[in-house]
Each structure stands twice: as structure tokens, then as C-alpha cells.
Design a protein around this nucleic acid. Structure first.
Lengths: 197, 197, 197, 197
DNA sequence: AATGAATGAGTGTTCATTCAT
DNA sequence: AATGAATGAACACTCATTCAT
């Protein structure tokens, strides 16, 4: 089992699971629901994944990979660290705007499972965040960013980007009414070392 | 049914539920688990709460009330808006430090249930957040705070406060190694209108 | 227990049970429902009845007694057996018309419980039917009624009377559109020995 | 789910349910009891039926179909309406004699559920009764039968046939001691328009 | 590779009954 | 006499998982 003999169906199962997690608590998504959504028999899932947890894990991995790829492809090369950071920020926001489901699912799974449990080799995965984290770490070393724990910087960036994208996605306001520049400014002000002021 | 003649057990049930939600997905907390933790028979729960949902709702209400009370009692009177905001910030951080479980549970339940579903009178409840929101709104009107959607301001404040408290709670670092002043500064910089710089 | 210190409440409990049985399967009527309908606590029922079966039994006894009393009081004295029979028939129909619930409940309980289980002394109870049965038996002995098993005569009488009353009660037709005389004629034709024809 | 790939077990479940309903109130028959009787796990039932209600419904349909088939096959062709009626009567009695459980179960389910709820296409189902009803209706139009509500005619026929069969089945008397001819006569006298007398 | 069948453990919920007060 | 509290057993139903085909 768990061989991906039919890659299409493998993707279909993950797709269905993603959509279900997007709308419900992770814990409420059942293999029955997934199978029904794909239009296959429930036991068929166990040919592609060795159990429910394995399915969730692969969902997580695929979505994180997609995000990494997107961000990597979208960010423009920059000469200095600040430019690189700004570029990553914009890429992440683009991703959040275009793939609100992906980001939502990633965060939901992260909250339900410990990170260790999800990824075997933490390094090569989660490259999107990894690149961001590298930038943030460098920025802290050069005194560009504040000397708070990395998780706070990361959180300030990601949570605000997601919130802005979600608000737009849910029609709370349009991108024109609340331009991303303001959010970017908020994040900059938060992250950057205030020595400038 | 649903009478609360024995307030001790009523509280015990809620306590047990809080601890279980703190450690798992809300959806995974079962009445069986709760009953086992309290040491009563599962059906006994239905004497104190008419539903599983009712139990969760009451957990939410109790925790939110406690937080409101704490913040209300802890914040010191301030002459100007900024002082008031700073005071609220500190009070929230104190709460997050002393009651990390409460904050965690409140956020988890909020994510699973819609706010409308949880509270009958949204106004008088959740006063802690209500007070903060009032302050933020006023600050925006006077030009003190940035003109982004309120939810972003609120998120920047609460998520960073919670993260800092959690990091300390989990032993990632001590309050001495990473003083709250830095987090407060991050929040100030994020929230305040940059016109000052 | 089971003392009827407060006869009012005793009757209230039976009343509520009667109404509930009228609308549901006997097996679906719970002490919880009864207590709620009366406005007392569930355990209170066990002061008046020693268990659920005992309650049902007393419901049955009371309703049967009421029917007996009604029929006994309503039938007019008759000189011959046929006149007596006709009078009983009319009395039963009057009862069915005025107390459709009672008749319904009696039949429902009879179907769920064996008769032996319901009444301790089968003789003195169920006097209404007893009187009818006596009449039928006499009629058979004198050759007035058909020589089929008594239960068939009884069934033909009671089931048709109930059906007619129910149809009227449910608005299927009015007593004017379908006068009882026709039903009485049907019963007479069925019961009476055809030698007359 | 709900596929009927293994027709044997599907029938076994229905058989067990029929026997249980025969002996108890419909409302008291539980999926646990049924499963135990068949010797399968309780959850297995939900592979063959989507609900407890669905199970009951299928029990009803199967029994009614069997009765229809039996009556249809058993009745002999008749030249006139009266002969047809007499033939249907005899067929119904044969069925009641040979399948007392079926008839009992059909009536019990009918009392608990509304007819509409039980069958999708009321017309083609329940053909046994349907044929009888057609005969009765025709008989009323030609003045052969009494002008009472159809339900009374139907009741007089079915209830007496069932009672006679049950009495024999329970050993109250033998078919020799109380020949069906007498019951048939009772029904004829009841149903037929008395103008003959 | 795919499915239907099967199961045991789990869910929330209701029930009849008992008991201390 | 009356009640709230408590419980164990039952219920309908869903789930993740396994297995033979």
C-alpha cells in the first residue's frame, strides 16, 4: 500500500481533503467524507495513504511545498537584505490572496499537529518559511530587525498577511479600500529596529 | 436538568474541559473524556449542561468573563488614550502570563464556533476585548493609530502577546532574557501612526 | 412509596401520560416527558408509582374504569336482550365520540402489554367490556348472535365504533354525512344470526 | 453504504427484525437486538440500511410485497364482483393463516409510521390492499356493498380475518371447531347491502 | 488498483431507577 | 412529599481500519 500508482487519484484525495479542512475543524474531517467527495470507496484511501494521519501529513506537505515554490518563484531578486525581505513579504501576500485555502489549511494542520510530527526532515520542507526565517535571522544579526524572538517576527508577518487576505476574500473590504501598502508599513514598523526613529 | 445546584461539580466539569481543550482540538474533546477526568459518570454531565455544545459555550463564557474581569481590574487609570492603551496592553500580557490556558482555550473555541453562536449578548460579554477595541477605535479617530482594519491592530496585539507568553511558558526563554518591553515596543511601532517618525 | 398522599398530582401524572400515549407509541413515552408535562421532577413520579410499568398499568386501569362507568351510566334499561345490546352499542359510540383519547390509549396499552399483565383481577375491571361480553354471550346462547368466537364479535363492534369516531374526530366526514345508524346496521348485520333473513 | 451486495445477510437482517417486531412494540426493537439476533456487529446493519427508519421501511415493503404477491397468486379468477370479493377474502385468510407474523408486523408498522412515510409510490405497493379497495369501491358504486366509509369495510374484513387466524394460531381453537365459513358469513353480512333481507 | 463487507471502539444523548436530603 | 444528583445501561449512529476478493 501507499504506492502512488495512480498519481491523479492521489492528488484528488489530497484536493478533497484540503477543501474539507478549509471548511471544518481538522478533527472533523473523516475519510468517509473525503472518499465521498472524490467519488471513490472509503477503503481506497488506504491504498494511497497508510492511515488518516498519514493523509493529513501529506496534505500538509503538499500545501507547504506549493507555498514554498510559489514564494520562491514570485519573489524578485534584490541587492540588499531589506529589498529581499520586502520582496518575500509581497510574494507571501500574493500567495495568501491567490491561495487563501492553502494558507488556511496549513495553519489549521499546524495547530492540530506538532511540527515535528508533521515533517520528517524539517530542513528541506517548509522552504518558504525557511527562506523567510533566514532573512529574518540575518536581519537580526545585522541589527536591521528587532531583537525579539524570531517567532514573534514571523507571527507578525504571517498573521497580518493572512488576515488582510482573508478580509478581502470574505468581502470585508476591497484591496482598493485597504491597500496592502498600509499592511506592509505596519509590518515594517513592527519588525524594523526603531533606531531609525 | 441543567440546574447548577452543585456549583463545585459544575466548575469541576468546566475545569476539566478547559484542560482538555488546551491540549487537543476542540472537536476531539468528548464528554467521555471530560467525565473520566472529573471522575463522574458520563451521563452526569447532562445534568449540568444540556449539550456538548452547551458545555463548550459555558467554558467559553467563563473564560472570557475571567479575562475581562482580570483586565478590568488590572489596568491602571490613565489620563490620555495612549496611557490607557499601554495599560491595557500590560494587563493583557499579565493575563496571558498567568493564565496561558485560558487564552489558548478562548482562541481555540473562537476558531471552532462563530462568535454569535457562543454568546447571547455580544455586547456585555467579552468586555476585555471590547475595551481594547474601543481604545483602538478612538485611537484611529484621533489619528494616533494606523488606518488599517481594526482586526489587524487587534491581531498584532493579541497574537504577539500570546506568543510571548507561550514562549516563556514553554521555557523557550525567560522573561528576563526577552523582556516584555521589546514586545511592547514592537506592538507600539506596529500600531502607532508613523507620522511621528 | 406509591402512597397516594396527594391525589391531585396522582391524577395529573396519569393525565399527562394519557395525552402522551395518545400521540406516540407507548414505548416512546418516558417518565422524563411525563414529569416535564406535569411540571414536577422526574423522580417525583416514583413516589406515586413504583416504576414505569406500574404507571402504565394505572393509566390503563383508570381509563378502563372511566369507560365502564360511562357506559354503565349511559346505557338505558331495556326489556329484551337486543334492546340492551343496542343500548350498549350507542353508549360505546358516545364514549368513543366524547373520549377518543381514552379509547385510543386503552387499545394502545392493550397491544403493548398482555392483558394478564395489566390487571390483577380481570373480573371486576374492564366492566364496560365485561357487560358487553355478558350480553354477547347471552345472545349467543339464545341463538340471537352468530356462533363465532366471542373475540370476533367484540372486535367487530369495538373496532368499527372506534373507526367511525376517529374518522369524525379527524374531520374525514361529519356525523351528519355518515350517520351512526349505518355503522350500527353494519354491526347488527355482522353480529346477528342470519337465520332471520 | 446501503449497497445490497450480499443479499443473504440483507434478508437475514430483515428476517430478524420481523421476528422482533412480531413480539414487541416497534419502538422497542433496537438495532442492537437485531444485530445480536443475526449474529453480526451492530454497525454492520448500517452497511445495508442507512437508518433504523430505513430498516423498518424496508421490512414493511418486503412484507407488504410478499402479501400482495401471495394474494394476487392465490385468488382465483371470478366472473362477477361478488365472486372476486369472496376470492380475495379467502386469499387474505390463507395468507393470515400461513403468515401470521407478516400480517402482524405490517399492522404494527402501519400504526407507528404514516403510510406516506413508508412507501415512495403508494400505488404500486400494497397491491393486496389496493386490489381489495378497488373491489370494495366498485361494490359500493354498484350498490352491492354498504354506503359507509371505505375504512370501515376494510377494517371489518381485515381485523376479523386477522383475529380468526391469530386465534387459531394461538391454539384458542382449531380451524375445524370454528370454520372460516362462519367468519366469511359475518363479513358478508356486515359488508353487503341489507336490501336483500 | 479498487471495492464491499465487516468490525470494535467511539460519539452524543436519553432513560429508568435510586438515594440522600 | 418532593427534589436534585447520580448512575449504568441502552440507543442510534459514525469512524478508522482491515481483509478477502
Amino acid at each position: 500500500m501507499m504506492k502512488k500508482k495512480n498519481p491523479e487519484k492521489y492528488q484528488q484525495i489530497i484536493d478533497a481533503t484540503v477543501q474539507l479542512i478549509d471548511r471544518q475543524d481538522v478533527a472533523m474531517v473523516s475519510t468517509t467524507q473525503v472518499a465521498k467527495k472524490v467519488g471513490i470507496s472509503q477503503s481506497n484511501i488506504y491504498i494511497y495513504f497508510k492511515n488518516r494521519d498519514d493523509l493529513i501529513k501529506h496534505v500538509f506537505i503538499r500545501e507547504v511545498d506549493a507555498m514554498s515554490q510559489f514564494v520562491h518563484d514570485t519573489q524578485v531578486p534584490a541587492t540588499d537584505l531589506f529589498g529581499q525581505f520586502a520582496s518575500q513579504l509581497d510574494a507571501l501576500f500574493q500567495f495568501a490572496l491567490q491561495h487563501p485555502t492553502s494558507l488556511n489549511v496549513i495553519q489549521k494542520i499546524l495547530r492540530s499537529y506538532s511540527y515535528q510530527h508533521l515533517v520528517a526532515k524539517p530542513d528541506d520542507l517548509n522552504a518558504a518559511n525557511a527562506e523567510l526565517l533566514v532573512t529574518l535571522k540575518k536581519g537580526q544579526q545585522t541589527g536591521l530587525f528587532k531583537q525579539v524572538d524570531l517567532s514573534l517576527l514571523q507571527n507578525t508577518i504571517l498573521s497580518n498577511i493572512k488576515l488582510q487576505a482573508d478580509n478581502i476574500h470574505h468581502g470585508k473590504y476591497t484591496a482598493a479600500e485597504q491597500p496592502f501598502e498600509r499592511v506592509r508599513q505596519l509590518i515594517f514598523d513592527a519588525i524594523l529596529n526603531g533606531s531609525r526613529s
